[in-house]
C-alpha cells in the first residue's frame, strides 16, 4: 500500500514524513524522524513516557496516529529548551536530582510544562494528580514533585 505523506509542524519546524495508515505518531517520531527523546514504555497509554503536545494538548503519542498530525502542531521534548537555555522545569529536575535512570524524564518534563502553563501555582496534590499518568519506577516521585513545585515558583518569579 502506498505510504501517506503528512505535512506537520514539529517544534516550530515545518516537517513532512511518510507513514502507513496505522503507524503511531510515536513510531514516526522515533523512527523516520529520529527524534528519540520521546520514549516508548508501553504503547497503550499507561506510562506517559511518550507524552507530547498536539495542538496545545498533552497527549500520549502512542495513541495518536501519525496521519492525524497532518496540519497540526506537535511539540516534543527536543523543543522544550529555549535555544541554549533550559526551562525552569528542566533546570529544577537537574537541581533536585529528580531523575535516576531518566527514561521517564522527557515525558515528565513535557507534562510538567503543560501543568505549569495551565496552573502556575499548583498544590502538591494537584501536581501529583496531574502527573499521575507519568510512571516513574526509580524515584518514588518525591524529587520530581519537589522539582515541579520549585519550577512553578521560579516561573512565577520570572513572570512577576
Amino acid at each position: 500500500m502506498a505510504k501517506l505523506r503528512v505535512e506537520t509542524t514539529i517544534n516550530g519546524e515545518e516537517t513532512e514524513f511518510l507513514c502507513s495508515g496505522q503507524d503511531s505518531l510515536l513510531d514516526v517520531l522515533r523512527g523516520p524522524l529520529a527524534m528519540t527523546g520521546t520514549k516508548e514504555g508501553c504503547t497503550t497509554g499507561d506510562c506517559g513516557a511518550c507524552s507530547i503536545v498536539l495542538d496545545g494538548r498533552l497527549v500520549p503519542s502512542c495513541l495518536v496516529l501519525a496521519a492525524e498530525a497532518e496540519g497540526r502542531v506537535v511539540e516534543t521534548i527536543e523543543g522544550v529548551a529555549d535555544g541554549q537555555k533550559l526551562t525552569a522545569v528542566q533546570q529544577q529536575f537537574l537541581e533536585h536530582g529528580a531523575l535516576q535512570c531518566g527514561i521517564c524524564t522527557p515525558g515528565f518534563i513535557i507534562a510538567a510544562e503543560k501543568l505549569l502553563e495551565k496552573n502556575p501555582d499548583p498544590t502538591e496534590e494537584e501536581a501529583r494528580y496531574y502527573l499521575a499518568g507519568n510512571l516513574c519506577r526509580c524515584t518514588g516521585y518525591d524529587k520530581i514533585i519537589r522539582a515541579v513545585l520549585d519550577a512553578a515558583a521560579v516561573r512565577r518569579e520570572e513572570r512577576a
Binding site: G45, D46, L58, P60, K114, N134
Partner: peptide, 9 residues
C-alpha cells in the same frame, strides 16, 4: 477517564 494525557484524546 484515564490520565491527563489520555484525557487529551
Amino acid at each position: 477517564i484515564g490520565s491527563t494525557q489520555v484525557q487529551g484524546r
